[in-house]
């Protein structure tokens, strides 16, 4: 039987009627039409489906939509403050050439946001550990790591000491 599920996504509240076996990934993409969150392996291994639940990076493909009720969900669509201005993490990915096909990018950026919220000045090793749940098959990670370093620098500069 379908149940009414209330989800708070990027600050907006959505009410959807969904079966309890639907994943958060499916409901975000198919019911709420926020297709920025990707579906990769479907097994929680590749990180393409990463979203934040109350600030923590999780695999939306392994999360039941019904269990995401009551959490603040952030998807890649919620990163930029406006249509004109990208989030510093997004802008750094563009500037550093850290995007090729783009499929892993939303998950990478949200994993980066989770990492930078806990560690504002991570070392390369810490960045790589923070991204260990996100696979990229194009870039070889070097530019992604530089993008996150650059994003960390910009975010620190934005923040008054």
């Amino acid at each position: 039987m379908k149940q009414i599920i209330r989800l708070t996504v990027n600050g907006d509240v959505y009410e959807v009627a969904a079966h309890p076996w639907r994943t958060l990934n499916d409901v975000l993409r198919e019911d709420i039409h926020l297709t920025g969150t990707k579906k990769g392996c479907g097994d929680g291994d590749c990180g393409a489906c990463t979203v934040l639940l109350d600030g923590r990076a999780v695999a939306s493909c392994l999360t039941l939509a019904i269990e995401a009720e009551g959490f603040e969900i952030v998807t890649v669509e919620g990163l930029a403050a406006s249509r004109e201005k990208l989030h510093p993490i997004q802008q750094s990915f563009v500037d550093e050439g850290a995007i090729q096909c783009g499929y892993c990018t939303p998950g990478m950026e949200l994993a980066a946001l989770h990492l930078l919220s806990k560690n504002s000045d991570p070392t390369e090793e810490e960045i790589r550990a923070g991204l260990s749940g996100n696979l990229c098959r194009c870039t070889g990670y070097t530019k992604i790591v530089s993008a996150i370093k650059e994003a960390a620098r910009r975010l620190r500069a934005d923040r008054p000491a």
């Binding site: 929680g44 994993a111 749940g133």
Partner: peptide, 9 residues
């Protein structure tokens, strides 16, 4: 154990 995402779950 596993990855960041899985450890958060």
């Amino acid at each position: 154990t596993a990855t960041v995402q899985i450890r958060n779950m």
